[in-house]
Design a binder for these strands. Structure first.
Length: 495
RNA sequence: GCCGGCUUAGCUCAGUUGGUUAGAGCGCUAGAUUGUGGAUCUAGAGGUCCUCGGUUCGAGACCGAGAGCUGGUACCA
């Protein structure tokens, strides 16, 4: 026996979570539904390894001082730095560059799997989480963006988000660049600060953003964020731009043209959005599902054209019943320079990704808790230790008939076994003791029936005497009788 | 990174100006009930009061440092 001092504490690293059957079933269902949609749009599945060489992941290169900044990195035995992927886009860029000669172009693929980020976990934010991503590499057409957007909309709905509960908001980086020019922003640093400020519009509101555009803002925790230092007039201009989105897409475009039209880059962005609008209309996606919104910024450098963000519209509440802001459940955009890092050749690409467990949480908040029906197996009770083979035979028969079942493998008596079956949310228990063996029968107990009756029973003697939902049938009718009980069990709710 | 809050049983938490043997509810185990789930009753197990140092006759409580957790904020590919 290990001494107390050397015994490890049973706990996982922070930011990593254990997920049980309930959550896994929900996520699996989402992925199956989304994959089906994505494949219907002509995207092929791709899986790449968890590790990439660090230089392939882009600007978050480990260096000698801080090799793990942002990513989980380690040195291979040949001393090359490799790191766990932090998203699915960077591995795609690497894959596309590596296989460019032989790929059908444009290359359309989707992927899902865990990604890892070595940063401080927050509420709903983990250091390992499952992402689902779809991209088109090698097409600069706005229709490629429109298709990704339409597919995102269809995917979210297929996963179970009711129509109208989420909207994809679309913007274009080129408009933002045009706006910067109009607002007199010249330095790259200042531009970044302005973009970050705009990105916080949904959380801080126009007043908070106005502060960030000007001198700066002090938050409730007393932390001060330095502002962009714009003049009041310039700040108002930026705010006016972000407020220009509302209603139908072409109307929004007209208003935006009034603010950023005229600059070469702004006009280019407007033309792209106009083409996206037409394509979306052709695909049957209206403004209630995909709208232009100039306040969408997404990330910082990386994106080069259209950017989009899927936002949950439902009023949601947290565990304590407090209303909460759910925010974005996914996002993406056009990144024309990512593959060029490998090939030196500019390769247009666009994509969308979402967090799978985040979507699962959104579905739960939307009242579509797909995880509810994780019922346990039929439990075969062991009353005679010497007849294990007979019990195994029973479970085998049930399994062969497609009914999930198991023999109780503990050593406790009958009552704990019943308790076990109850706790597993088993639909039924199979009871075969000396009486049944002698008579060639089996006793079956419909546990759901007992669960339903339990609330009305106050006296234990009566409860036990009643034997709710219990029946004895000939051994030969075992499978048929169990099937009747199991198929009448409520899938979602055991109570 | 910056700012706050918290840390006592498996869980949720009490614990009086610093004073005997540190408590409750839930959960767990056993019994009432030897072949029956819920409820009830009874009994039991379960503690480095986060760690180290200091003050004191005496610290779960006060002081200092550290760790962990948590909320916000910054960053976010």
């Amino acid at each position: 026996m290990t001494s107390d001092a050397s015994r490890p504490e049973a706990r996982g690293p922070r930011g990593f979570i254990d997920r049980r059957a309930r959550d896994l079933a929900a996520e699996r269902r989402i992925l199956a539904a989304v994959a089906e949609v994505y494949e219907r749009y002509g995207f092929e599945a791709l899986d790449t390894g968890a590790f990439e060489y660090a230089d392939a992941l882009g600007k978050f290169l480990p260096d000698a001082d801080r090799p793990n900044e942002g990513v989980f990195a380690l040195q291979d035995d040949d001393e090359q730095w490799m790191a766990l992927r932090y998203d699915l886009t960077a591995p795609l860029a690497r894959f596309a560059a590596q296989n460019w000669e032989t790929l059908p172009k444009p290359f359309r693929r989707y992927a899902f799997g865990p990604v890892w980020r070595n940063e401080k976990p927050g509420p709903g934010r983990f250091r390992e989480f499952v992402q689902c991503d779809a991209d088109t590499v090698g097409s600069a057409r706005p229709e490629a963006d429109a298709e990704i957007i339409a597919m995102a909309v269809a995917g979210l709905e297929a996963a179970g988000l009711p129509a109208g509960s989420a909207i994809v908001k679309i913007n274009n980086r080129k408009l933002l660049n045009g706006l910067m020019t109009a607002a007199g922003v010249t330095s790259e640093v200042q531009k970044l600060v302005v973009l970050r400020a705009v990105d916080k519009l949904d959380r801080l509101g126009p007043d908070g953003v106005r502060l960030l555009l000007g001198e700066g803002r002090k938050d409730e925790s007393g932390d001060f964020t330095k502002g962009a230092g714009l003049t009041a007039a310039a700040a108002e201009r930026v705010l006016a731009f972000t407020a220009a989105g509302a209603g139908d897409r072409s109307g929004t475009l007209d208003r935006l043209a009034g603010v950023v039209g005229g600059s070469a880059e702004g006009d280019e962005g407007l033309a792209e959005l106009s083409a996206i609008d037409a394509a979306l209309t052709g695909l049957g996606v209206g403004a209630e599902r995909a709208a232009f919104d100039p306040s969408v910024v997404r990330g910082l450098e990386y994106y080069t054209g259209a950017v989009f963000e899927a936002e949950l519209l439902l009023q949601t509440t947290d565990d304590k019943g407090q209303p909460m802001r759910f925010g974005a459940i996914g996002g993406g955009g056009r990144y024309d320079d990512l593959v060029a890092r490998f090939t030196g050749e500019r390769t247009p690409a666009t994509g969308f990704s979402f967090g799978v467990s985040r979507l699962a949480a959104a579905l739960k908040a939307a009242g579509r808790d797909l995880a509810a029906d994780s019922r346990g197996p039929v439990v075969v009770l062991v009353l005679d230790q010497d007849r294990m083979a007979d019990y195994m035979a029973v479970a085998g028969e049930l399994r062969a008939a497609g009914i999930a079942s198991e023999v109780y493998l503990g050593t406790s008596g009958m009552r704990p076994q019943m308790k076990y079956a109850d706790r597993r949310l088993s639909p039924a228990a199979v009871i075969i003791g000396g009486d049944e063996f002698a008579a060639g029968t089996v006793t079956l107990k419909d546990l759901d029936l007992g669960r339903a009756l339990a609330s009305g029973v106050t006296d234990n003697a009566a409860w036990r005497a009643e034997r709710p939902g219990q029946m004895t049938v000939p051994r030969t009718e075992l499978v048929a009788a169990v099937r009747r009980i199991v198929s009448s069990a409520t899938p979602g709710d055991a109570a």
